[in-house]
Design a protein around this nucleic acid. Structure first.
Lengths: 249, 249
DNA sequence: CGCTGCCTTGATCTTCTTCAAAACGTGTGG
DNA sequence: CCACACGTTTTGAAGAAGATCAAGGCAGCG
């Protein structure tokens, strides 16, 4: 039996991923900001989390929904995006296991400003915002970790602002590929494969351009030998060339 | 003696602003994240802060400097910006009294990614990053407040990303004016005056465009009666019109 | 009064978007 | 196993938006 698919991507399960009960505790232990908690503390925290599974493309919450929960990715990949009044999508981030999203803020300012969507079959753990804030109050080490993560994210967002303000479409696409490779890249025969079904439209949403421009840039990069790409997948063959594109000019 | 200046802006002192010693404690009390601390705790915190004064245009730190201090604006206005490899400036934020900037992260990843510059005569309080982290560990309520502020900033940064990705230059300038008015606007005869010496180049840095385009948009807005503007100043006369520009199309 | 640095305005050119149509890869159902 | 249908990708050509280049005007200040 030969395989005619050309995608080097690993195929994902079709059913919504559910984390096994015993796996949950292990996942929470590995989440960066709970790392310093004792086993008994983690156990208490664990009881406050509930678990949800999502199929590829399924929405976890929509911009404008009541924001009263915080989520932690247990398995899969989640994208955070915004829609303009005109309906254009802008992708803000792709989250992988261990990262959190959703509402951190106290009740009051209570609408999600963005939308969270599962990119592949995923499992997330979720806690009420109020409950999480109590954990922060009780365990300062967790709070400090959360501050660190937020600082990291703010820095990344500022970097996006800079790119969008001052770079050409070619540079922005190169930068997006560089970031994706760092976060989701896996060494394969084709190169640094980005483990994600990634269309030209997705790239355009991330780089602030159009599908057509993204396609043109990708063709150009492939012709120059920087990447290898096909329908819904990309692998980086020359990361340094992409980095130079972003930095030097 | 008649005044021939046309600027409606209040003139700033030329010497670097120094906060009087007794004023320092009062300022720290009013800083949002120390609000819940007792008088004695604040006193202890106060002793860890040192004070710096800056003249307009003076740099507080430069991107690439060793990042080991956190700053709190006591008086004045501080701008946070980044420079592209090509030297183009991108303004990320304008900070007013009570807001913090600088390094929050643990020592290790230790370079400021951005540059901080005084826009007007300013006074800032500063603490070592390590000392501030100890405060966070000791006073969870402070940590939670910091998390909230970071969440707010991240949301604002994401909004900038959205604007830059999906809006025209006209919309981006309108959006920048809207934000500045909300943060720095003061009701005067000319309208909602933005209390800041603000050149066309500054606006361009904030909106991700060029001086010339910023100038054209400002002329257009003035012709349409939305704003009143001159050399280094702007006042908003019709905020709703600007908001509609951003939201509707 | 004249200098300096901002601001404005016009003309040109580049970049990117838009519109359109064809080519291709994938999964489906014969 | 093959052929069809769908969504993705590519490519072209025309158009618009904004950057760039260049010059002149004006405010503020000595």
């Amino acid at each position: 039996m030969k395989n005619r698919r050309k995608t080097p991507l690993e195929i994902e399960a079709i059913e919504p991923e559910m984390c096994s009960v015993d796996l949950r505790l292990e996942i929470l232990t590995q989440v960066p900001f709970f790392a310093d908690l004792s086993a008994t503390d983690i156990e208490v925290v664990n009881r406050q989390f509930v678990e949800f599974g999502y199929s590829p493309g399924e929405m976890i919450y929509l911009a404008g929904d009541q924001a009263e929960r915080l989520y932690v990715v247990a398995e899969g990949k989640i994208k955070l995006l915004r829609y303009t009044p005109a309906g254009q999508a802008v992708m803000l981030d792709v989250l992988t296991p261990g990262e959190f999203f959703g509402s951190l803020a106290a009740l009051g300012e209570n609408e999600y400003p963005d939308t969270a969507q599962a990119l592949v079959s995923s499992c997330v753990l979720s806690i009420e915002t109020g409950g999480f804030r109590k954990i922060l109050q009780k365990h300062p080490s967790v709070a400090v970790k959360v501050v660190d993560i937020m600082a990291e994210r703010l820095k990344a967002a500022h970097e996006m602002v800079q790119q969008l303000s001052a770079s050409s479409a070619e540079q922005r696409i190169a930068h997006v590929l560089r970031k994706l490779a760092a976060k989701l890249g896996e060494r394969k025969e084709v190169g640094l494969l980005i483990q994600l079904p990634l269309s030209r439209a997705d790239l355009a949403e991330m780089a602030g351009t159009t599908t057509e421009t993204a396609s043109r840039m990708m063709s150009q990069f492939q012709k120059e030998g920087f990447i290898q790409t096909g329908r819904q997948w990309v692998a980086i063959r020359d990361l340094k060339a992409l980095e130079d594109l972003v930095d030097i000019p």
